[in-house]
């Protein structure tokens, strides 16, 4: 049963399908914002299939093993995180793989994998992208960690299931002053974690020609796109887990879960469609000088019980 949960529902397979559907949802919103019709629902799937049929180009400067392996490592950890969150939503009382710290560390791996792969491509433009991704990573992790652990401290547990349970008893974390501030900070961090506008600094198409994913093409790019799709499913799910009581699959809970999920992805999509790209030093200042104090404020507020 556990194997089924990890591999099929709500684990690996489910996560891939929902992730690709979310990509369509996001593109549809983008299209509507831009006054277009937008793609049909299966667009995400056919895009991936198309990429697999294309030629895969490897730059002559690349360290081949690292360059090819990096997308798979990133994909596999994104898959694992999705499965862990899903399984924790089904059985909040049990943990099978690890707690919230394990999850946080695993969420770093996809970024690291891309950085590694792009450095291995040997292209200096890609390396500019890597350096930006790394700086972005350092900046958004600080407020994110503060929010994460102030919630863990509030529930006095580190297990994902424990945080879900706490919210089922005491009401969702979002519905308090500290929760609202925390949610805003976490949402902006999530936007950066996903590498979406205004934080697409490492990719910056017009400037460094897609930066970190510049040299990827064909089937390797398909794996990377799958990884991004998985993250687009996983990170909103993570927000729901720590702020809105997780994935509740009983009765009306399913409906609530779907609405919460769609709303969060909607907000992310709207932000990305209505903002210009920041410079890397502006982004670092935003996270360290503005959002970190806000996150600290939220932590203090939750400590005093607001």
């Amino acid at each position: 049963m556990i194997i089924f949960n990890y591999l099929v529902f709500p684990g690996f397979l489910f996560a891939i399908i929902i992730g690709l559907l979310t990509v369509w949802y996001d593109r549809k919103i983008t299209a509507r914002v831009q006054w277009r019709v937008g793609p049909p629902w299966y667009q995400g799937f056919v895009d991936i299939l198309k990429l697999f049929t294309k030629e895969t180009l490897i730059p002559s400067t690349a360290k081949k093993t690292g360059f090819v392996l990096a997308p798979f490592v990133g994909f596999s950890t994104a898959l694992l995180v999705a499965a862990m969150l899903g399984v924790a939503g089904l059985y909040p009382k049990m943990s099978f793989t690890g707690d919230i710290i394990v999850l946080w560390y695993l969420l770093m791996v996809p970024s690291i994998a891309i950085i590694f792969g792009s450095s291995a491509s040997g292209n200096p433009i890609s390396q500019v992208g890597s350096s930006r991704e790394m700086k972005l990573f350092m900046s958004y992790e600080l407020p994110f960690v503060i929010i994460l652990f102030s919630i863990a401290a509030k529930a006095h547990t580190l297990s994902i299931g424990g945080i879900i349970e706490y919210q089922r008893v005491n009401g969702a974390n979002l519905w308090s002053l500290s929760g609202i501030i925390g949610f805003i900070v976490a949402l902006i961090s999530t936007q950066a974690k996903l590498g979406l506008v205004p934080f697409d600094i490492p990719e910056a198409e017009g400037e460094i020609a897609s930066g970190i994913i510049l040299e990827y093409s064909g089937s390797l790019l398909a794996i990377l796109k799958l990884m991004k799709a998985l993250l687009l499913y996983t990170l909103p799910l993570f927000l729901i887990t720590i702020f809105l009581g997780g994935m509740n699959l009983q009765g009306l809970g399913i409906l609530w879960f779907i609405i919460e999920y769609l709303v969060i992805v909607f907000i992310i999509s709207i932000i990305r469609n209505t903002n210009p790209r920041l410079r890397i030093d502006q982004a670092m200042n935003l996270f360290w000088a503005i959002l970190t104090p806000l996150a600290t404020l939220s932590g203090i507020l939750s400590y005093v019980g607001l």
Binding site: F52, T53, K54, E55, L57, I58, P59, G218, A222
Partner: peptide, 13 residues
């Protein structure tokens, strides 16, 4: 799924 071939090319600059 992979049907495309692999090819070594000059990096993009």
């Amino acid at each position: 799924l992979r049907t495309g071939k692999m090819k070594v090319v000059e990096p993009f600059f």
